[in-house]
Design a protein around this nucleic acid. Structure first.
Lengths: 135, 135
DNA sequence: CTCCTTTAGTTGGTAATGCCCACTACTTTA
DNA sequence: TAAAGTAGTGGGCATTACCAACTAAAGGAG
């Protein structure tokens, strides 16, 4: 086969499409893709800055500014950790949680067409296969 | 079920993992994700600036600088279109083509572990399902 | 054939991203 | 208690990507 690898190629292609959709939703709310991601992460977590950085695959200093800007918009807040005077926990504000919910719904809506061509069974199968890749 | 949508959720998750891998390969060669993408696109195309912009989902002005920087590194070149004195065609230089090949191989290598947990049959099935989404 | 409009691309200005490095402040270890 | 390590911030930098304004080249209407 001359194919570099069809699965990986398709996977990359689809991933770019997903990113385009996510960026679109983010942009519609004046957010960057990273900010959208932050809100998504904070939906079910309250990490320290360093943990958030690891999660995002970014430098700590990058996350500082990121959280700064999100905080300035009233979407997240910092709370000093009581057990460790150095750390800071980041969490969603009520407004941030509202926005996160809204974004989640909108992402579902925007991404839905991507799997529209698959039948119910195939959709499920895809979900399982993707889930297996995350393990 | 409280799940918003497992398929889409997994898809987004996997997509971020893919992006992380691609970014990693790009960074190893002092390239941004977008630059990597440009090289990938130019592997089998010689688009005009506007076409490249559409393909990337970026503004024309963004692509100008992008191509500038890639050209400064000797990876791509601009050629004036003969039939339309306004357009410019972008193509890979030999060095750019070499790098693109190398990047392709490296991406395959880096991404391979993602599908390692799937058997041959499931791998193929996944490829088909993803391919169907691109149609 | 000349105007007028449209299209292709670049430039300049701005905000955000994300890196590295240096720094402060608080822990932990020795 | 001193030294080493860890958490987070801030400055400096190049890049990214937007918009708006611009130049140059086609295309259309009269």
């Amino acid at each position: 086969m001359t194919e570099p690898d069809e699965v990986l190629d398709n996977l990359a292609q689809v991933s770019f499409a997903v990113m385009a959709h996510l960026s679109q939703v983010a942009a519609a709310h004046e957010l960057s893709l990273t900010q959208l991601r932050v809100l998504g992460i904070l939906r079910d977590r309250t990490p320290k800055m360093a943990e958030l950085a690891t999660h995002l695959g970014l430098d700590r200093s990058s996350v500082s500014g990121l959280v700064d800007r999100a905080a300035r918009r009233g979407l997240v807040s910092r709370e000093a950790s009581r057990d460790d005077g150095r750390s800071v926990r980041v969490s969603l504000t009520p407004a941030g949680a509202d926005l996160a919910r809204e974004l989640t719904a909108e992402v579902s809506r925007v991404m839905a067409p991507m799997t529209a061509g698959l039948g119910t069974a195939d959709r499920t199968r895809l979900g399982v296969l993707l889930g297996r890749m995350l393990a």
